[in-house]
Design a protein around this nucleic acid. Structure first.
Lengths: 230, 230
DNA sequence: GTCTATAAGCTGATAGAC
DNA sequence: GTCTATCAGCTTATAGAC
């Protein structure tokens, strides 16, 4: 259970050989589609059962492929798991709105909270998968936590601290504030079943997330001594 | 994967037969001790790997017993899992600080937050286990969520609403407020590894939880338009 | 009550025909 | 590239000796 954090996936071949079979079909087209189907199936399976509880058989069934084909594209279980995190972390880095010292604290934090809520809405499986991995002790993501994530938090905390030093917001612990925003926003994805059951709803609607984002923005910003931007 | 929410555990015999073997040894003493050892081992195993990922073999090893003995005390895997939740839900109901309309909102919410943080500190495995179960879709706790928990939330939300109606705190959504307190406090147990890694700490100390409780109380109470009690 | 032996089935992974 | 057949190992659970 100790292996490289984010293992290498097979490199999709970039040799540009056209493999002339009629211009409609690009060479790696089926390959890419199957890879995508498997990764989506794997996201469901791993998010629901964790690494040990997930089975390749079940991933194959969800993807509508024979088990052997799954193992043809990804040579083993760990590779599938790692490839998913590659995708998820890349998306996280791409989508994420950053905060800077010259920003207005209220607007920046508000935007941070809303982006995170939107991520919970759009990628609930990714959120649950990440939560699973952490609860299990982060065997795959340990290095990522220790390096990239630690650095990221320190950078953002320094920005928040600069706002505090300039008297632009109340003196709250910046690192704790980041944890608060993470936990409260991810909760809507990770604990979806609990929230739906308690509120007696069959499924989420867009307005539920808007409402949640408004609520969180209001409470957290006021809690930081900030005016809530309209 | 669809079975009764909280299955019946074997009834510990209450027939009071002294089974006279010298007064020092109560009849079910070894039984109780082994049962306890198994449940503690199961808590670790299930919290780390989820229901499907956990193995009876591993539970037995953690408990220092042969696998067959585990299956002697609990006839199958589901019974072990269910028995744990019996214990955990019972403890939750016993420990938990309630809130009432005649309470001071600031003191009541503050006490609520601190109690939850203390639960994260004292019973992190129970928290992670619960989180796992919910992320997996709550196959065992569905009924509990739909009945007891929904009722509990509605009762507490009504109390918070009464405070709002009396103008004793800002008009925030009471149900969302409960979710916020749950998520932010449980985070310290469920995402322990992430927090420790990001903060570059080897392990939690008591003061870390005190600090977290102070932070959360401060931000959330101010967010609700309340003065933070000293 | 405890523990060894074993059944019956599923797991990840590989070999090899097409 | 695809799929069937198959392996060794591990899984839950039971039978039965002590």
């Amino acid at each position: 259970m100790t292996e490289p954090t984010v293992a290498d996936t097979e490199t999709t071949r970039k040799d540009g050989k056209p493999a002339g079979r009629g211009r409609k079909y690009r060479p790696g087209r089926i390959r890419e589609r199957n890879r995508e189907k498997i990764l989506q199936a794997a996201e469901q399976e791993f998010a629901q059962h964790g690494f040990r509880g997930a089975t390749i058989q079940s991933i194959a069934e969800r993807a509508g492929l024979p088990k052997s084909n799954v193992l043809y594209y990804f040579s083993n279980k760990k590779r599938i798991y790692a490839a998913m995190f590659d995708d998820i972390l890349a998306r996280w880095n791409r989508v994420f709105t950053d905060i800077r010292p010259e920003d207005d604290p209220a607007r920046a934090l508000s935007s941070f909270i809303r982006t995170k809520v939107e991520m919970s809405r759009r990628y609930p499986l990714a959120s649950r998968l990440f939560a699973m991995e952490i609860i299990q002790g982060a065997p795959f993501l340990m290095e990522h936590l220790r390096t990239s994530m630690r650095e990221w938090v320190r950078g953002r905390a320094a920005v928040i601290q600069s706002w505090i030093d300039d008297g632009r917001m109340a003196p709250v612990d910046p690192v704790q504030l980041i944890f608060l925003i993470w936990s409260s926003t991810q909760h809507y994805a990770d604990f979806q079943v609990q929230i739906l059951m308690v509120e007696n709803k069959a499924e989420y609607e867009k307005r539920d997330f808007d409402h949640a984002a408004d609520f969180l923005t209001g409470v957290i910003l006021r809690g930081c001594g900030l005016e809530v931007p309209t």
